[in-house]
Design a protein around this nucleic acid. Structure first.
Length: 286
DNA sequence: CGACGGGCCTGACAGC
DNA sequence: TGCTGTCAGGCCCGTC
């Protein structure tokens, strides 16, 4: 599931490839996957590529934007079929295989390259928005985890508003903090040694401080390793990430805790979401 | 073959 | 009444 590090990785890859290129064609294979007017996008040059929360934004010269939410199974793969690279093309595996049956929207650029929006589950979307609409929708998100606005005072304040929530649900809420999903949530709580069902009203300032530090730590590590590939996630070159080899708890039910504490990782459900933790390191508050 | 998962939105509902 | 917070259900389809 693409979370902040995965979308950031795609952004870094895509910006190297599509800035200054003009979109010359759009093919929509699944109507619900593309919302808005093609005419606002066609023949427009890409000015920049950004990320806000888990949303990827391609900014065009006419100030319209293409926004993508990949939800769980979305992919954005860029392929330049004209490019010949010694030793093989980085996206060689995908080269002659796109579009495939999961391709929902296909963009073509003025250099002949293609950008393929694939999405097995069809939960993801691509929306065309003008400047005002983008600002409005981005304004609904909480602070970015790396911004100064994500601080102790802010969190204590928010926690007061939602005292009954568990810390797991609290961090998943995109209006509280933007970009955290199931994987990095569990990993950050593990590093913070906090039981995921702990009510936010019970957390101390020291614990909140640990949460801030460790949220940033796991997201930074995720970006460093190019994201987590659990099932479908690939970067803009179609390559898998590497962070799945550096996780402590996510999808590790029954395995020994990496800390060496002797605990066995457990899975519970919080707010309908699978949650992984070490019952030894992350003790329930009594 | 049916159950399941999962981010996010919507609508229903509870509480003050 | 009206606002706010919480929760269940729906969207999908490959995997188990």
């Amino acid at each position: 599931m693409p979370e902040l590090p995965e979308v950031e990785t795609i952004k870094l890859g895509l910006s190297k490839k599509i800035i200054n290129k003009k979109i010359t064609d759009i093919v929509v294979y699944n109507k619900k996957s593309f919302q808005g007017n093609k005419s606002d996008v066609l023949q427009q040059r890409v000015i920049d590529v950004e990320r806000r929360a888990k949303i990827l934004r391609i900014i065009l010269e006419n100030s319209h934007s293409l926004l993508f939410h990949l939800k769980m199974t979305g992919q954005l793969i860029y392929i330049d079929r004209n490019k010949r690279v010694a030793g093989g093309h980085p996206s060689h595996d995908w080269h002659d295989k796109l579009p495939n049956k999961h391709t929902r929207v296909q963009f073509t650029f003025d250099n002949g390259a293609g950008l393929f929006f694939n999405d097995l589950r069809k939960f993801g979307w691509c929306k065309v928005m003008n400047q005002e609409e983008v600002e409005k929708s981005f304004g609904l998100f909480g602070p970015e985890p790396f911004s100064n606005d994500f601080n102790l005072k802010y969190l204590l304040d928010k926690a007061k508003r939602y005292p009954a929530r568990t810390i797991k649900q609290f961090l998943m809420d995109q209006t509280v903090v933007a970009g955290i999903g199931n994987i990095y949530n569990d990993e950050a709580l593990f590093l913070s040694k906090i039981y995921p069902k702990t009510k936010v009203s019970k957390l101390t300032s020291h614990e909140w401080q640990k949460i801030i530090t460790n949220v940033r730590k796991v997201l930074t590590k995720g970006i460093k390793y190019g994201g987590t590939t659990d099932s479908d996630y690939v970067d803009a070159d179609g390559k898998s990430g590497g962070m799945q080899n550096h996780l402590n708890v996510y999808h590790k039910t029954g395995e020994k805790c990496q800390s060496g504490c002797g605990g066995i990782i457990e899975r519970i459900v919080i707010g309908g979401r699978g949650t992984y933790f070490c019952p030894n390191c992350q003790k329930e508050k009594i």
